[in-house]
Design a protein around this nucleic acid. Structure first.
Length: 125
DNA sequence: CGATTGACGTACG
DNA sequence: TCGTACGCCAATC
C-alpha cells in the first residue's frame, strides 16, 4: 500500500526569508468568508514550484501561527474536507464552514465549484 | 543521515 | 468510473 520511495531526498536545503508557509498563510487569510479553495490552487498561485502537499504541511503548522489561519476554508481538489481529521474535532471544520454559509454534506462541500475561490483569479486578475 | 510519511494532484490502466 | 502509481518537497522517525 505504501508507495516505495525511491527518491533519496537531498540533505541540503535553503532557508528563505519568506517561507513557503507564510505565503500560504497570506493567501488563506485572504479567502472571503463563505468561500473555499484548494491546496493545489494555492500552490499554483505561488508558482506551482511547490506541490500541493506543501500547502497541506503549511496548514499543519498553521495551528500555532498568528493570526489564526482559516484552514477550514482550504479543502482538496474534490471539495472533500480532508483536513477535518487534523482539527480539534473532526466536526469542527464542518461547523465552521456551515457557520460561514458553506453547505457541507458528508465531509464534502456542496457547490464546491461555485464556492471555489481562486487566488490567481481573484488576486492576480 | 537515510528512509518514510503527509491536510494533494495528475496520469495511466 | 474507480483504483493504483508517481511526483513534489519538507518534516519527522
Amino acid at each position: 500500500m505504501k508507495r516505495q520511495r525511491k527518491t533519496t531526498q537531498s540533505k541540503n536545503k535553503e532557508k528563505k526569508l519568506e517561507s513557503f508557509f507564510e505565503q500560504v498563510y497570506a493567501v488563506v487569510r485572504l479567502i472571503p468568508r463563505g468561500k473555499v479553495t484548494s491546496y493545489g490552487a494555492i500552490g499554483k498561485y505561488l508558482g506551482t514550484s511547490s506541490s500541493a502537499r506543501m500547502v497541506g504541511w503549511a496548514m499543519n503548522s498553521s495551528h500555532h501561527v498568528k493570526p489564526k489561519v482559516p484552514a477550514h476554508r482550504v479543502v482538496n481538489r474534490t471539495g472533500l474536507l480532508t483536513g477535518k481529521n487534523h482539527f480539534a474535532t473532526p466536526t469542527q471544520m464542518k461547523e465552521l464552514l456551515e457557520k460561514e454559509g458553506v453547505k457541507v454534506k458528508k465531509d464534502h462541500v456542496i457547490d464546491f465549484k461555485k464556492l471555489f475561490w481562486d487566488p490567481m483569479k481573484e488576486l492576480e486578475l
